[in-house]
């Protein structure tokens, strides 16, 4: 038996794994650091709370409006999608036959995979033009809600399915009807999980750019939407437009700063979701 050959193979395999894995681990970390390094010169309280002024090229510092715009869109989208998600999940759990269940799951899995830009396109056609809502907060929120819906539904379903069957059986044995079961048994028990799902949806909503690009935002600086039907500016699109301008070093810094803020924002929601998950597990 060729012993050294076997040990040789061991070392080779290990080296290959290390060789391939190191870039996979290092590059993303370097990138994270790079983002914050580039953003450092610009990040301070003024930046975040100031308002960006100027139309077109004359962009100055301050991303407050964009920040609020992003949050506003995300919150509205979540608020719109959540009831539908809950409704569908409840329908799935209580009323749907097994064939309908499989159909629903298949449908949502497919919807989940559809690129968000397609939803944006659809929204542009239907909402902005057909319904004549124009490029507005409402259009953007609805499109975003459509993007979030499959994710929320699947998360809610997962949350509801974690409730042990015995719990539900005990409730039914006591003679509780469906709505009682939902409100008094299921929701109190799973609200943490549902909240986690919502937080994840918020994180997702904040990182989507494509669907809202032409349905909610315009380039020329908007400070604050007057109504549901007026356009709004968001961090994501702000970064996007700046990226296309970027020759001026100040513009570049602003863009990195906005990027850093956005990353932090998304991370916050993600971390909150993780914390909640841990709480739930304990």
């Amino acid at each position: 038996m060729n012993l050294s050959h076997l040990q040789y193979r061991d070392t080779i395999s290990k080296s290959i794994v290390w060789l391939l894995a190191i870039p996979a681990l290092l590059v993303p970390t370097i990138i994270l650091g790079y983002i914050f390094w580039k953003a450092a010169p610009v990040l301070d309280w003024n930046f975040i709370s100031g308002a960006a002024e100027g139309i077109g090229f004359g962009v100055t510092e301050g991303i407050f409006a964009q920040l609020l715009g992003s949050l506003l869109l995300a919150v509205m989208a979540c608020v719109m999608a959540a009831p539908f998600a809950l409704g569908t999940a409840l329908y799935y759990c209580i009323y749907a036959s097994s064939r309908q269940q499989r159909l629903l799951i298949a449908m949502f899995n497919m919807l989940q995979g559809i690129p968000p830009i397609v939803f944006g396109l659809c929204g542009l056609v239907v909402l902005v033009n057909l319904f004549s809502w124009g490029v507005s907060l409402l259009s953007g929120a609805v499109v975003l809600a459509m993007v979030l819906l499959p994710l929320l539904v699947l998360n809610t379903l997962a949350a509801l399915e974690r409730i042990p069957l015995k719990y539900t059986e005990a409730g039914r044995a006591l003679g509780l009807d469906s709505s009682d079961i939902i409100w008094r048994l299921w929701l109190p028990r799973s609200w943490l999980n549902l909240l986690t799902g919502l937080l994840l949806a918020m994180a997702r909503a904040l990182s989507e750019t494509a669907p809202i690009m032409f349905t909610a935002t315009v380039f020329s600086g908007v400070v604050w939407p007057d109504s549901l039907f007026s356009p709004v500016t968001t961090l994501q699109t702000h970064i996007f437009y700046l990226a296309q301008e970027g020759n001026d070093s100040q513009v570049i810094s602003i863009a990195w700063g906005s990027a850093a803020v956005l990353v932090l924002l998304v991370a916050v929601f993600g971390l909150l979701a993780r914390v909640l998950k841990k709480l739930e597990a304990d």
Partner: peptide
């Protein structure tokens, strides 16, 4: 997991600059 959540716009920035 943190990296998985970075918005695509930011990757776009990285790409372009």
């Amino acid at each position: 997991e943190l990296l998985a959540g970075i918005p695509s716009v930011v990757y776009g920035l990285l790409g372009i600059w």
